[in-house]
Design a protein around this nucleic acid. Structure first.
Lengths: 178, 178, 178, 178
DNA sequence: TATGAATGAGCGTTCATTCAT
DNA sequence: TATGAATGAACGCTCATTCAT
């Protein structure tokens, strides 16, 4: 999957033959299909793998006793940082989410999405957010992650500029806060 | 191009053979390559075509004497409306922008982008926006268009709800305003 | 189809790659699938082609005013001769009829089968045949064709021995006659 | 071999991967090649296995002191009955005999074939058969077995109709008798 | 400007067979 | 004797592109 990630990032799903994935990974062509019955299965499995790793990283960043805004900030920043550190993951998700493989159901089923949506619901209860469905709030926040990461990729000198990131979190926060 | 748009929306760039485009369009396989030397040329031409049509529609909506916020609102709403009315255009752009065909240079070269960025610069001069580069402001606004259209596609009963759209414009506006 | 016939006879359906058929036929790999959407379509088309050619040859041999036995003899002998002259056709049919492609419905639908069965029905009406369903009578006769051709292939010195063939027709005739 | 027989009957030699045979038999993929060095060896071994079992069954049916016709009848009927009871064996033989695996030499080498041919030779000596080589007489009889079994498979309501079978033996007998 | 047959490189997948354990 | 992961050649089929007409 690591090899596939790299190649997909470089050439896209369709520009990457399974044979090349196997070759670059130093294994035989056939064995790929022993673990993933089809290329589509591989791609879907990679989606969950990325989501899982981001989720694990995010959990490692949150701490007990944080306020709601702090928690959301931590999750938001964790996603940004993960994608900046792992641009292949970012590129993969971008492709995946605008491909026929993606569905909202799949996304919502993941714990990372569920956790974030729960925080949105809490914010709605506390009256800190605009009156918008929690899934849409989630989407808005995540699109800001996307925008931020894309901009940081184009302007790599800003990648160490924490004030910049924090500024963009405030953009996201101002968007959803009442 | 209309046939290609429909097929690309249904099956993606890679899932749509040129032969099928030609067949569905009622022309011969060969003639497609008379007008577009390669499939890539077709795709790029379609990108500019969508952009052009959105731009024309947007211009038809703005009016002299509008305030800055009104102008931006008009442009923002025109994009949302266009994509809601022409979901194939939306689907096409989504695919295009996360494909290897897309580049920032291409996007910036278009008059639609340039016009919007000029408005962002004006807002910065007037001190109504946060201190963020105009291209990034543009991106944030456009991502909110994307988010809005996607949400409207999933919840089609909201497509006639103008208050909903206006509310989401305020979300976008709050994001960027100082 | 002629090239396919030759290769199928040598190596069987499964031992003959479509690429080899194309190459031996002096055409490109791809064009094969322009005329036959799949290898299976090619195989089925070849079945009807063989049947058609045997039928045409058989019709050219029968003559007006022949008695029932003469007519059946002519048909039987035409089949034997055709297969002896065209061993690839014979080999193809042998493979086809014991493959999943074959079905009784397909066979019965062909004019060659229908014509032969009609003669069997006439024989039943005239009381010259044993009381056996006409399709089974047809099968018995055809199996004797098969047996005869196989034996002639193994003993090629008999291929010019018309007395031998006639003798085997009498075997077939004795089998079904009352 | 029992599992292979079932799968070959359903999907043919080429439609049945060795992996599936092993899996359905509840053993590992590799062990198959411990007992049969190649798939071809398995198929050939299965051929002899079917022949052996038919031979054993046939011998259990013949009795001392039978006339020549009775002996032949018993052998013929034993073959028909075996194949009706064991359609997978029949299907297997049909495929095998029209495959590149089959050769006359292999067939003649089997005791079942030899025994039957000996009876044909005895009949020729006694002057009850037409003047035809014994191997060809054998083939004619066996083709009638084939025809009979195929017809019984298509018309299963006839499977208990012993008069029908006997009638078809008479067809076979009339074919070869002088 | 138009047709559609022809090309051929390339791809996803299969599967008999091997091999380390 | 047994496992099942690993191999890699091979195959059916696709499809962007070319070309004769």
């Amino acid at each position: 999957m690591a090899t596939a990630r790299k190649l997909f990032a470089q050439n896209g799903f369709y520009g990457t033959p399974t044979a090349k994935i196997a070759k670059d990974a130093g294994v035989s062509n056939g064995i790929l299909f022993h673990y993933f019955p089809t290329k589509d299965h591989l791609i879907k499995a990679m989606y969950f793998d990325v989501k899982d790793r981001i989720f694990d990283y995010s959990l490692s960043q949150v701490y007990k006793g944080a306020t709601l805004k702090e928690s959301i900030y931590t999750l938001w920043l964790a996603a940004v940082e993960w994608y900046v550190e792992n641009p292949e993951d970012f590129n993969f998700m971008l492709q995946f989410e605008s491909s026929p493989y993606y569905s909202v159901e799949t996304e919502v089923s993941h714990r990372h999405t569920q956790l974030t949506i729960e925080l949105m619901e809490k914010g709605l209860e506390q009256g800190v957010f605009k009156n918008i469905q929690p899934f849409l709030l989630f989407q808005i926040m995540m699109k800001m992650v996307e925008t931020t990461v894309q901009y940081l990729q184009l302007n790599s000198e800003l990648q160490e500029d924490f004030a910049f990131r924090n500024g963009l979190f405030e953009v996201a926060w101002d968007a959803v806060k009442k």
